[in-house]
């Protein structure tokens, strides 16, 4: 087996999520064993003749039969991915990377803070927490999107919201009158979010600036640096520490991350051009 060579997967379903985001559901063409991963891990997705990029896995970790990726069409590869349809074939290498601290969070409140497409890498955590509900305290999802039309997994969130054992608070950066939800950046939800600061694990995923300001608010609420986790993004060509591109200080984001505790990367976080 060569870690640099992808396995082929067939598109089972293409779901348009918002105007620029979509989900693909994939099935392995090479094995019947399914695809197992841990929440927070990513795959390198290869599109024939175009290239390969890292994309986090967005499916349910308990359902190994189907591999789910949600992404936004912004770059060369993702724009090509946006054209995929049922039965198309892509190459997959993975899963790679260190997952979200779902084991460390057992017995604690879990606060998920997502911004934009940053909800996609956190979705497997939600699935995991809900299917192991008794192991966790309160579960709170704070999600910030650009506009109501940009809310990812909207139907699913609405359905989840009807459960009584998870708090979901959504906010958008801008809206017009027919929106009855919150307007304001996601950080404004933190001061009054219902969690116990001394017994909470926070997992944050979104643009780096959003994560920085979220951390500021969480520290104000009294969360410790070890209990705040972020998922980092850098250029990646291999996923296994061979290409060098994703280095962040002494860390390789691909294999030492992408999930880090704030404590681990505090000395680098927000420093320029690291």
């Amino acid at each position: 087996m060569d870690v640099m060579v992808p396995n082929t997967f067939k598109v089972q379903k293409f779901i348009k999520e918002t105007h620029d985001t979509f989900t693909i559901e994939l099935k392995s063409l090479e094995t019947k064993n399914g695809f197992t991963f841990e929440p927070g891990q990513f795959n390198m997705i290869y599109i024939f003749g175009i290239g390969e990029i890292p994309i986090s896995i967005s499916g349910d970790p308990n359902k190994s039969g189907i591999l789910v990726h949600t992404t936004r069409a912004v770059g060369t590869v993702t724009k090509e991915m946006a054209k995929l349809k049922k039965d198309d074939i892509v190459g997959i290498r993975g899963p790679f990377g260190r997952p979200w601290p779902i084991k460390e969070a057992i017995g604690s409140d879990v606060l998920l803070v997502a911004g934009g497409i940053g909800l996609a890498p956190l979705r497997p955590v939600i699935y995991h927490l809900l299917s192991n509900r008794e192991y966790y305290g309160r579960i709170i999802l704070l999600y910030g999107a650009r506009t109501p039309q940009d809310i990812l997994y909207r139907k699913e969130l609405e359905k989840l919201r009807s459960r009584l054992d998870i708090d979901i608070i959504v906010t958008v950066d801008r809206a017009v009158k027919n929106w009855t939800g919150n307007v304001g950046v996601v950080t404004t939800l933190i001061p009054r979010a219902p969690f116990d600061p001394i017994n909470t694990i926070a997992m944050i995923c979104g643009p780096e600036i959003m994560m920085r300001y979220t951390i500021v608010e969480l520290l104000k609420r009294g969360l410790s640096k070890e209990n705040i986790y972020v998922s980092m993004e850098r250029n990646m060509k291999c996923g296994v520490g061979f290409c060098g591109h994703c280095q962040y200080g002494t860390e390789f984001i691909c294999k030492d991350g992408p999930v880090f505790s704030f404590k681990e990367i505090e000395h680098l976080f927000g420093k320029r051009e690291i």
Binding site: G115, G116, I117, G144, A145, R146, D150, D173, R174, G184, V185, T187, T188, G206, P207, I209, M210, Y213
Partner: peptide, 12 residues
């Protein structure tokens, strides 16, 4: 603070 972050249009 919130308004400044909002102005960045982070998810745009």
């Amino acid at each position: 603070d919130a308004m400044r972050i909002q102005l960045l249009d982070l998810y745009g």
